[in-house]
């Protein structure tokens, strides 16, 4: 290998390692500072080693904040929303890809249109409809509006269009009804797309924040992101209490981190599909 190539390889690694630090060190800081005392965290914010080491922040997270309530609400919302999005998304995607019925082109155009609607402009509108329907400040308000998303429908439609119809034709000749065929023939073949949609829905609903702002106001109905935002805005009382806040944020990040590491290739695929989809 020439010196030039060696130098270029060295420079390449140097850049990559520098940026890995930039992208990962904030998480190191988050983890280490959540095990520090408040004084230590403000005196040595950069140090990766807590001195002294303490789990005081976590004791207080579980002992004197409503964290357990938020966690429970987040788990409940995430499970129901993920199931709903996967089921409704694949059903709608299948109908748009395969079933012939009047109004289908219009419905698909509407799905494309809804994908373009920016979520932040829906804050006031969603509040209005929840208020009008008498759902505001309840579990249904937190969950039902998230049960379907246009992007999920789009992903499933694209997927169903990419698989050959032959299996379904065979089932059709057997005289299977449309729903039974969908459930026992179509869905099992759609596993990769279903996993992608499950992961996307899980991540999206676990991290969802703006919707909780306009759907509930009772602290007993807060999910983790809403509770965290509430902690930061000063419901804690004296001091900055960074170890506690960082610890709570850390606990809220762990489930998504585990899913990310386990199913990484599905995340990557989704971003790539985004590139191709345009």
């Amino acid at each position: 290998m020439t010196t030039r190539a060696l130098a270029s390889r060295f420079a390449g690694y140097a850049i990559l390692i520098f940026f890995s630090l930039v992208f990962l060190y904030p998480f190191v800081i988050q983890i280490s500072n959540s095990f520090k005392t408040e004084a230590d965290a403000s005196a040595n914010p950069l140090s990766p080693v807590p001195h002294p080491f303490t789990t005081d922040a976590f004791d207080r997270i579980f002992g004197s904040t409503a964290f357990p309530t938020w966690l429970g609400n987040s788990v409940l919302v995430t499970i129901i929303v993920t199931l709903g999005r996967v089921l409704f998304g694949s059903m709608a995607g299948y109908a748009l890809a395969r079933l012939r019925f009047p109004g289908r082109p219009v419905l698909f155009a509407l799905v494309l249109g809804m994908m373009a609607v920016p979520p932040v402009v829906l804050l006031i509108p969603k509040f209005l409809v929840l208020n009008q329907l008498g759902m505001y400040n309840s579990y249904p308000a937190l969950i039902v509006p998230l049960l379907a998303d246009a992007t999920g429908i789009f992903i499933m439609k694209q997927f169903f269009e990419s698989v050959p119809v032959s299996v379904e034709e065979a089932a059709r000749i057997d005289g299977a009804g449309v729903f039974r065929m969908f459930w026992s023939v179509v869905l099992p073949t759609a596993k990769p797309a279903l996993i992608t949609l499950t992961i996307l829905s899980f991540q999206g609903s676990w991290n969802e924040f703006p919707h909780t702002l306009v759907s509930v106001q009772d602290p007993g109905l807060f999910t983790l992101p809403r509770g965290l935002a509430d902690l930061v805005s000063g419901s804690l009382g004296a001091g900055t209490q960074y170890p506690l806040k960082l610890g709570a944020a850390l606990l809220a990040t762990i489930p998504v981190a585990i899913i990310f590491v386990t199913f990484q290739r599905y995340f990557v695929r989704d971003a790539n599909e985004g590139a191709e989809r345009g």
Partner: peptide
Amino acid sequence: VTSSVAISVVFLF
């Protein structure tokens, strides 16, 4: 892929 709220807390610190 992390929560925008959780990451904002880290950056506040």
